[in-house]
Structure formats: structure tokens, C-alpha cells
């Protein structure tokens, strides 16, 4: 199953990176958001670390929606979803493959957002890079687990992307708050005293929605139109 999930992820990455719409759109939208929010900074004043963290994760969340919409739409055009379902591949492998691909694409787009936050929002990494990267991985994991589950909502003819974001965003709140708080500490240099608690929330979120995703995905990803 892991091998097949790997093949699905590799195929998705190849299609998304090589001329795909989703990744480029996600990057552009995120950049645009970061730039637009930088306009709210009065001339000569600094954006607080917390505001910068919030803007960064907001950009990531919007990117997430585009990335997963694109990943799941790959299967819709020529009925490939039915192909996957009629093959001996377990549905879990599809969820895992989509999650891995989405995680990779999210990290790639954040590699653009982070310098953009530094440039437009005047931020510096004053705290520890290790904390930043760990937090990034932890939060992205949670985002990808839930995105890969609910992205399957987009299948079928009636589904709309806007609905996906309306449903996804509030659910993501705990893990996004965690990301914002830890990033605020890393940007400003004085790590928040409750950093450990937030790490706990992020890990709990990842665990709950990884389990839920693995369990629930086969119910969502079906041959019924």
C-alpha cells in the first residue's frame, strides 16, 4: 500500500509541478495576500511578529485549498477516479498519496511565502530555525491530513471550491493558531512561554485527523457520482 501511495504521490507531483495549475495558483495567491496585508502596515512602522505569522498561515491555508482542489481534480477529467477505485489499490493509498503530494506542494509554496513575509512584512528569523521548521512540518502535516480527506468533497459535478474552503477553514483553526503563535515567537525572537502547549495541540490535531482521515476517506472517495 505504501508503494502504491508513493506512486500516486509521484504522479501527482509530476503533474502539479510540471505545468500544473494548482501550485502556481497557490503560490501567486499566497504572495498576493502577503503583499496586500503588507499594505495595512503604516509607513515607518513594523508589523508585529504575530501579525506576520497570521498572514503567513492565512496564505498557506488559501494555498492549501487550491493545492488540494487541483490534486483531486486530476482524477476527475477522464474518469480516473473510477480507474483507481476499480483497481486493487486500497482507498487509503489514495488518501496517503494525495496527502503526501499536498504536503510537498505546500512546503514548496511556503518556501516562497517565508522570504515574501521577510521582505514585505519586514520580518527576521530571530528565534530558532529548528523550532520554525518543526512547527512548519507539524502544522503542514495537520493541514495535509485534513485537506486530503475533505478534498475528496470536490469530486463529482456539483462540488464547488468555495464550499471546500468554507468548511475547511474553521476546522483548521486550532492548528493554525498553533502555527501563528510559534511563528510569532520565532519572528520576534522571544519564544512564547506556552510554546510547549501549542506543540501539544499541533501534535494532537495531527494525530486525530490522521486517524480520522485514514478511517473516513473510503466513505468519501467512492464511485457514486
Amino acid at each position: 500500500m505504501l508503494r502504491r501511495a508513493g506512486f500516486i504521490a509521484a504522479k501527482d507531483l509530476r503533474l502539479s509541478v510540471g505545468g500544473g495549475q494548482g501550485l502556481v495558483q497557490a503560490m501567486l495567491l499566497g504572495l498576493l495576500l502577503i503583499f496586500l496585508f503588507s499594505l495595512s502596515r503604516p509607513t515607518g512602522e513594523l508589523v508585529s511578529g504575530q501579525a506576520a505569522g497570521a498572514i503567513f498561515w492565512l496564505a498557506s491555508a488559501f494555498g492549501l485549498v487550491l493545492v488540494f482542489n487541483d490534486l483531486f481534480s486530476l482524477e476527475e477529467g477522464q474518469g480516473c477516479r473510477l480507474g483507481l477505485l476499480s483497481s486493487p489499490v486500497p482507498e487509503h493509498a489514495v488518501w496517503l498519496g494525495k496527502g503526501l503530494a499536498g504536503f510537498a506542494l505546500l512546503v514548496i509554496s511556503q518556501a516562497v511565502f517565508l522570504p515574501a513575509a521577510a521582505v514585505f512584512l519586514g520580518q527576521d528569523i530571530q528565534g530558532s530555525w529548528g523550532v520554525l521548521i518543526l512547527a512548519l512540518i507539524g502544522v503542514d502535516w495537520g493541514l495535509a491530513a485534513l485537506g486530503a480527506l475533505l478534498g475528496a468533497l470536490a469530486q463529482g459535478q456539483g462540488a464547488r471550491e468555495s464550499l471546500f474552503s468554507v468548511i475547511l477553514f474553521p476546522l483548521l483553526l486550532p492548528v493554525l493558531l498553533g502555527g501563528i503563535r510559534i511563528f510569532a515567537g520565532v519572528f520576534s525572537g522571544d519564544a512564547a512561554s506556552d510554546q510547549g502547549l501549542w506543540a501539544g495541540i499541533i501534535v494532537a490535531f495531527d494525530a486525530v485527523f490522521t486517524a480520522a482521515g485514514a478511517f473516513l476517506f473510503p466513505f468519501l472517495y467512492t464511485g457514486e457520482e
Binding site: 504522479k11 503533474l15 510540471g18 477522464q78 474518469g79 473510477l82 476499480s86
Partner: peptide
């Protein structure tokens, strides 16, 4: 592994 499905949908990824 020994079942195959062939419908009017072509199950193809156009960019591959």
C-alpha cells in the same frame, strides 16, 4: 488484481 474496467471514460491523464 485480475479485474479490469473499461468504460466510456478513458482513465487517462492528458499530460502524461
Amino acid at each position: 488484481e485480475d479485474c479490469a474496467y473499461l468504460g466510456h471514460a478513458t482513465f487517462l491523464y492528458p499530460r502524461l
